[in-house]
Design a protein around this nucleic acid. Structure first.
Lengths: 196, 196
DNA sequence: TGTATTTAATGACATAAGTCAAGACGCAGT
DNA sequence: ACTGCGTCTTGACTTATGTCATTAAATACA
């Protein structure tokens, strides 16, 4: 098995502020399954239950919905050292309203809800990490909602430039537009104007 | 002290699925301080640190920001059996970007971060409740962000009518408009049209 | 290397929403 | 009952953003 668990261990230790013992690392290795996804492949499709949560070792993905007019709306863009799942569906075992799709070839480490509860959550570093993530996510969701409600497209784009400049390198502009809640044409024009 | 702790006990027990012992109830009574706020009074002002979190026994409040043009944007509307705080500021002890203001006369039960950590969090029902709240909040924040990004003003209003019809009775229309990210004039016109 | 596919830019036009100003209405306080 | 303030509605106009169509450029891939 060539997949890189080191990234996962580093991540858990960094966020939790706790060290993982060799035994604990073995528990991770025993229950997380390495998997590859090719570009455009789906990790989750609308209507399905999100059976797995996965740690991203390599690559990127998007979480999106499709509205009645057939337009896609990206809610999250995820890269290395991030978790891939639909939180709501994963914990409540309800059908998901979202699609999760690889934007580049990916290497992930995935695990079911049942195995997390039984083997992984009892590891103190892991549950400490979960609390930190939950707190960060809540704060981030609130910020993003604030800017969606109170800022113009141009202002939201400038925020993205400041906070996640690497996203602009990494993702095509139409994905960024969808993430910002704009049409690709509008984002193209915003960029043109902001070069003034 | 006439303030009604029963609402708080019921709430904690309901969300956690655990019963509070008489001793545990005494811990709540010893550390939560009853307080009254008059309509328009501030619970938190932008730039201050959110020292308290408070349980709402009676009344309502709004959390809002003021942008460069002096426009207010409401991020949350809170009523009975809800918590009043700026999550980010309260836990990280950083200056808040938000204002929290009573919309009606209020009765609340407030407590500092330090006292929560020392006395309240050790109560199992309380920390179980916190996990449930954090999960619900995360899911709700994601839903609201989704609709802010992908739906029109009219669609967002219809969602509110379906999900929180009592808000329409209780809050003035200009507050609802701000909560939806619309100008009061636009909401007035949306309502007129939707009576068709 | 050539061809197909995806992505980005642009113009012309349509639609949604904001802005400003005026007036009507209702309610609180005296 | 009067007054004043806050709230809601409406009209006229402006601005932001979406839509559709076309072309150009970049990229994938065979």
């Amino acid at each position: 098995m060539t997949s890189n668990f080191e990234a996962l261990f580093d991540y858990v230790q960094k966020l939790s502020g706790k060290i993982l013992s060799a035994d604990e690392k073995q528990v991770f290795i025993a229950h997380f399954k390495p998997k590859k996804l090719r570009k455009r492949q789906y990790f989750l499709q609308e209507g399905d239950i999100c059976k797995y949560t996965a740690f991203i070792v390599k690559g990127s993905a998007r979480t999106f919905t499709v509205d009645e007019k057939g337009h896609e709306h990206i809610l999250k863009l995820c890269i290395e050292n991030w978790w891939l799942n639909d939180f709501e569906s994963f914990y409540q075992l309800t059908p998901s309203r979202f699609n999760i799709q690889a934007l580049e070839d990916m290497e992930i480490l995935q695990i079911t809800n049942a195995l997390v509860e039984e083997f992984i959550k009892p590891i103190p570093a892991f549950s400490a990490m979960q609390n930190v993530i939950s707190q960060n996510f809540t704060i981030a969701a609130q910020k993003r909602m604030e800017s969606a409600i109170s800022r113009s497209g141009e202002e939201r784009f400038q925020e993205l430039v400041n906070e996640y400049p690497h996203f602009l390198q990494r993702f095509p502009q139409n994905m960024i537009a969808s993430y910002l809640g704009l049409s690709p044409e509008t984002l193209s024009r915003i960029r043109k104007n902001s070069l003034k």
